[in-house]
Write a protein that binds this DNA or RNA. Structure first.
Lengths: 228, 228
DNA sequence: ACCTGAACACCGTTCAAGT
DNA sequence: ACCTGAACACCGTTCAAGT
């Protein structure tokens, strides 16, 4: 069998007898490799078999460390959620800190292709997910929301920015920076769709920082102005 | 019901008194079958090969009518979007009509398992998608928004309710009405996650009509109160 | 123009057997 | 306890050949 060069950070080559040693597999190493595959080829580039090949083993070996593909998805997400920067309590206005947190959340999900869709697809409940929810809840309560409203709001906020990351993800993998949607909108008949026709440019406006900030404000203003 | 085609045996002259005559393949028929498979088995129950089997043919035959699996997803979505009820113009307040439209949109996406995730995953741009966007744009303009704001708002609204459908979809297929998330939240340590611990009940509250209405109000209030 | 079987290059997961 | 090859039951897509 041909030997692939191991790429995981957690793999230290220890010479043993006459052939290169194979470091033991580990859950963290599997997650590393999975994230690496994701960065290189998106969701389409990630499979258990590819992770196994990358780690120079067979697909069955991974099942010692992860229950199944979905469990790997969970672990990947929790790892990424752990990278989200949570502003220190008491430094600056709660609203700015919450905005910063959600901006970091969105950035992390966009940092590697596939993550956005994972975030929408898999129901995460790892420790880093809880850390995120706890921090957002605290900020909303600090902002004056009552508990029940804050509980619904944290869901709405995480869901919306996950959805944004997922949408950008789909565009990216579908090769759609200026693709089918653009064509469809531009070819639209002014009689049947007068409003779309008049607002084509605005509809196609890229997701820049201004739009992200607007979305943030829409959700926060909405949550602040809407009692249960 | 047992209409498996014996593969390898000649089949054309066999009379089939036990079932209706096989309709010729067509794009619409393929969509019908795909929606049927979706209704029965969710996204996991839908594949081109299963559609082909259901239509009593081989997988290659479908490629005369659809370019690939993603194209089928597009067609499925556009079919479903066509079912969304768009309130008549001028009947009642614009906000009520917009709420009704978005509620219908959400209901249709939840009507069959898999649709919610499809809506988040595939970039739709068919005629029924345009019809939806046009109607929402018109309602937002009627509500007094300027064009650029309405353009961003229609995206945010469709995205958010697609995300809600997708989330419920994931719960359903993951068999998670009261599953891992619940357990994770209930087992949370009061010291590390005081807010989650205090609000466990509120966080787990089902997505009833009250919550849907609240979400609707959050987004509409937010959009109305947030200029670009 | 439409349909087809067969093949290609993949999947996730399980299992019996090894260390 | 960990690892493995092989097998099982699937995928989407392509192709040469049929009608």
């Amino acid at each position: 069998m041909e030997r692939k060069k191991p790429s995981g950070v957690h793999r230290e080559i220890v010479s043993r007898r006459d052939r290169p040693a194979k470091p033991p597999l580990s859950r963290e190493g599997i997650i590393d490799t999975a994230l690496d595959l994701l960065a290189r080829g998106g969701l389409a580039g990630l499979s258990l078999r590819k992770v196994a090949t990358e780690l120079d083993t067979g697909p069955a070996s991974l099942y010692v460390y992860i229950a199944n593909l979905n469990a790997l998805y969970d672990l990947i997400l929790d790892r990424v959620f752990g990278e989200v920067e949570i502003p220190e309590t008491g430094k600056g206005a709660w609203r700015e800190r919450l905005s910063a947190l959600l901006t970091s959340y969105t950035e992390k999900l966009i940092s590697r292709p596939g993550l956005g869709r994972l975030a929408m697809t898999t129901v995460a409940s790892g420790p880093k997910t809880l850390r995120l929810m706890e921090a957002i809840l605290a900020l909303l309560l600090e902002g004056g929301l009552d508990g029940p409203r804050a509980a619904w709001a944290v869901d709405a906020l995480l869901l919306h920015f996950s959805a944004i990351a997922s949408e950008q993800d789909s565009w990216r993998e579908h090769g759609n920076p200026l693709g089918t949607v653009e064509q469809a909108l531009e070819k639209v008949s002014p009689e049947d769709y007068p409003n779309i026709h008049a607002l084509t440019k605005e509809l196609l406006e890229g997701d820049g920082a201004a739009r992200h900030q607007w979305t943030l404000d829409v959700l926060l203003n909405g949550v602040l102005n809407t009692p249960r």
